[in-house]
Design a protein around this nucleic acid. Structure first.
Lengths: 214, 214
DNA sequence: CGTGGGTTTGACTATACTCAACTACGGTGG
DNA sequence: CCACCGTAGTTGAGTATAGTCAAACCCACG
């Protein structure tokens, strides 16, 4: 959804590549550039003092990240898998110097980011683990670079990544995948290779239980 | 935190006022304006088909909301209490016409919004109800228009609003307030009038338990 | 082919949700 | 000004669900 008609004319740029788990930028660093993913996957995350980690977003090809007002990074960006991206050397405060086009482009990227966060909040508020995982699967299925054709998912991230994204423990996540597989909603070919089975979404009741459990 | 140095010169504007619970805009409506709060409080929310409601953000004086790329509203905005605001008649796609200043201003507003959402995600991922409520109290204490001086909070929103914001039931929220009161961390003078008691934050361990339970 | 980390499963515990009743507050009208 | 009423909030009991600790499994890598 990101990056339609945003070329950021006049902004200095170069291509960079990051191997799996490479830190692209870390919390506390000065922010002077933003990025657009070409191939791969990036996670935005906050590392808590107690060692726990919250993943705020998974970003995929086309997505722009790193645009912000604050001069220092509040969240870290790490490559989930080997990732190629374009690095634009500009901050929002200087955006005016590049003309309104660049500013609108950056605003547009922020729009997508905010929209993704909002969707994430909505996903997290599904109380049950089952709902959260269904929501995650729906999100993944809607991403072109994850969903390879007909209901076949190729996940770039680990179970722990997903757990930290959904606010669940890896154990609960794994159990939930197993339950959904038993329900026939998904086939877990391997940890990162899934096939969605339910062609049409099951009808939900007010209490969140499925009517057509099959 | 919002609205520093953003005057949106040249953008047509007018002042509007909304009584408690008035819908400012609803999901599905066309988006042609954005807003800045003068006094009061606004909630951004999504109403689910099952009747449940997720509140994505509480917005306070100075905050800007309603800036988006999408031509239709994905979330609704409602006044929590009687609210006065300025309505700016401009959308992000036309922002270029007003010069880069307006575009940067709108991007800046989006930055704040995204930042708030990100903080919200982090708050929701605190597993326990106790942590979520502590996080909410911390958020409220940091808001000038809620925190009246020394650790005294005047909440504009109801328990149900807070519950829908934190992804808890009103019962659990109420119980949690009672527990925090028993722990001496907060005094619940009335439902919307709180006094924070812990001058210094209690030290936490990796497992989230307090060391200096008192 | 062997090893190791990621993943899955198991048993138990802690916590939040549900349904229900009770209470307190705020607004209205006498 | 006080009494009443309705709604919001609180508390209680029982149940369902996710977390914790621990061990087994399995795939991917060397």
């Amino acid at each position: 959804m990101a990056a339609q008609g945003r070329d950021f004319e006049g902004v200095n740029r170069w291509r960079i590549s990051a191997p799996k788990d490479r830190v692209i930028y870390d919390e506390g660093e000065p922010a002077s550039a933003f990025y657009q993913i070409e191939t791969g996957c990036v996670r935005l995350q906050v590392n808590r003092e107690d060692g726990r980690r919250q993943i705020l977003a998974f970003l995929l090809p086309g997505d722009i990240f790193g645009v912000q007002c604050d001069p220092t990074r509040r969240v870290a960006a790490e490559a989930v898998v080997r990732t190629d991206m374009t690095c634009f050397h500009a901050s929002l405060s200087q955006a005016g110097a590049f003309g309104s086009g660049a500013a609108v482009g950056m605003a547009s990227a922020l729009c997508d980011l905010a929209s993704g966060f909002a969707t994430h909040v909505m996903g997290l508020c599904h109380a049950s683990a089952e709902s959260r995982v269904r929501w995650f699967l729906g999100w993944a299925a809607a991403q072109g670079s994850i969903s390879t054709g007909d209901d076949r998912l190729e996940l770039p991230m680990s179970r722990r990544d997903i757990a930290d994204f959904l606010g669940l423990t890896p154990e609960t996540l794994s159990r939930t995948f197993s339950r959904l597989e038993a329900l026939g909603e998904v086939e877990v070919q391997s940890a990162r290779r899934l096939v969605l089975r339910s062609k049409r979404r099951p009808v939900k009741r007010r209490d969140g239980r499925r009517l057509d459990a099959a």
